[in-house]
Design a protein around this nucleic acid. Structure first.
Lengths: 352, 352
DNA sequence: TTGTAAGCGTTATCAC
DNA sequence: GTGATAACGCTTACAA
């Protein structure tokens, strides 16, 4: 591989002149610049990315750091997220390091190493929990980072994040349902140990409050995980006295919604605006459009999230301190300095 | 950040001793080693990944190179692939660069640059077409690479690849169908301009030959893309004289199968082993299990593919020493490029 | 067993 | 405008 030395030799100038010519500095003779560029081309020269990194102290690599590997492997949402993030990163000339500890105990050491070795310029912290030690760890380490998601105390903790406004998503669902005349709306949710689960349920409660309806404990069930649990919950709903029975079931995830659909089908209950009960999901996973009936759900703007994360992280890397200016756009709301909420999109299909 | 100089200073030895101690060389005093390790810990030292890279000429980054960005964005299969590849890469301490040209015209330049700048140690070439210039380009550039997929002349072109044995997948489907007593089996396929489409159709023909059945032109249709085209093709099948009508429809992709299912449903035709016609897909995309009936299909072993690709690529990178002339003098054996075929898995669900 | 010194290929800081 | 030369932080001959 050719180096600037080879070019310098051939052209008959010094390496510093070559470097300046190559980097478009103004203080280099037009003649010289021409000859340097030409020779570079002839020699098939490309600057060594690593050597440049060493000098400018930038690795041009960012890390994607989910809580545990298993979440990425099992959640289609995450796999899609990583794929799109890698693509977005390349647009900005960045490589992506998937930063996952084999066990939770190793997490801290892994983060310390990646920060200490200068292997990455910044970190996209994913899979944020209501309480998440990683935030303060990263602060301590002085690494640039942006979180995808937020802790429950995000307002007091001033760290940069991008999150999908799940509460708004559920409110949109509720608005849609109310518009269809539904009054008794049930909520089936996953365990309340993730920020998004909490947030989605919050959206549900907010809507109810807005419509002046009290939360009915029979109509809100949480911590659902296995299909059987979902089936049992739906059964219970169905056994409620007629006038207490919900006409719509809002869920906090597509998988849950799919299980609900299956159970309802087994009971021979027609689903949809025209049927006996409406059902909604959240996420718009790949299968949502293929369910019967096709699922009305809320789509997470993953591509926008990736772009936004990077447009927050990159200035942060470049100016290691100042709050980067951020241009909010369509569906992008800035809730604090470097704290951004993304509007999800209601996707109306056949189930509600 | 602490460097080996800091450690050397504090311990009172030279940097080379520190380096050797840190790298576990045997020729360093036990005492010294202890003190160096201790001090490294105290100073919170982590070796600079970039500095090391410059010296050992290894970036610890590999590229993922699909044909065009659009394929990754639109194909769930690819997004999942990238996500899992990033994870696998990290297991081997590798970062991942998504290498995608904005336009086909730029491809060559982009590859040249990434190879010339030493930014990546190797490339995972994805989205291989029957004829693919990138293979010879990469050969010319002398970059280590492994293809995911193969060209049609893979036997003569000696390059390493990992591919899913699509033909075997379809043969498994056919075997299953024959076992259920199906004799007239139709094939609906996508355009034959991809290696996998060709390969899957080849599997179909092979099976037919094995069972001593001639390919019936009415029962094999290709180049299907839009749902309407699929619907039209199914309609045509359904209008065939009774004894010519297929009892099973094999497709070369889940999306196609989904469209077939939809069309059949509109015609009120029962699908499944007990119904009027059986339908199969290929890929086992996320939605396959959620179709009605759940789709019998062929699952691509994506995680295995990623692992295999890396276990092929990494030795290839390592065997290309920093001083190849020296190694060549030693008479190192040039192993032939590995070519690996992965067996896909038949997933039997309700549709066949 | 340890130290000296020469790179690796850039960019940056000076002089000239 | 241009050229020496010193970093950047590490590995690795070669000496001692």
């Amino acid at each position: 591989m050719a180096t600037i030395f080879d070019i310098a030799n051939k052209v008959g100038v010094s390496i510093s002149t070559v470097s300046r010519a190559l980097n478009g500095y103004s203080d280099v003779g037009e003649q010289t610049r021409q000859r340097v560029m030409e020779t570079a081309r002839e020699l098939n020269y490309y600057p060594s990315a690593v050597a440049r990194s060493l000098q400018v102290k930038r690795s041009n690599t960012i890390a994607f750091a989910p809580l545990v590997r298993q979440h990425v492997e099992s959640e289609p949402f995450f796999k899609e997220f990583v794929g799109l993030l890698a693509l977005s990163a390349f647009k900005h000339n960045l490589s992506l390091l998937a930063l996952v500890a084999e066990s939770p105990a190793e997490t801290e050491e892994v983060y310390r190493e990646v920060a200490g070795s200068g292997r990455v310029d910044g970190i996209i912290l994913a899979d944020i929990r209501p309480e998440d030690d990683r935030i303060s760890l990263l602060h301590e380490l002085g690494v640039s980072f942006v979180a995808f998601g937020r802790t429950s105390d995000y307002a007091s903790l001033a760290y940069p994040f991008v999150d999908v406004d799940s509460a708004a998503g559920i409110r949109a669902v509720m608005h849609h349902l109310r518009g269809q005349g539904h009054e008794r709306i049930a909520y089936l949710g996953s365990p309340l140990n993730t920020t998004y689960a909490i947030d989605r349920y919050r959206g549900f409660c907010q809507s109810l409050a807005e419509y002046g309806v009290e939360v009915n404990d029979h109509l809100a069930v949480h911590a659902l995980q296995e299909p059987q649990e979902v089936a049992a919950a739906v059964d219970r709903l169905l056994r409620l006295p007629g006038r207490e029975q919900p006409t719509a079931i809002v869920t906090d995830g597509d998988r849950l919604a799919a299980a609900v659909l299956t159970t309802l089908e087994e009971h021979g209950i027609a689903v949809g605006p025209g049927g006996q009960v409406a059902v909604t999901g959240f996420d718009d996973l790949a299968f949502a459009a293929y369910l019967r009936p096709p699922l009305t759900t809320v789509r997470q703007p993953i591509a926008t999230a990736c772009e936004t994360l990077l447009s927050l992280l990159i200035p942060k890397i470049n100016s290691k301190q100042a709050h980067p200016e951020f241009a909010a756009g369509e569906g992008i709301v800035q809730v604090g300095p470097e704290q951004v909420l993304l509007e999800p999109e209601l996707v109306i299909r056949g189930s509600a």
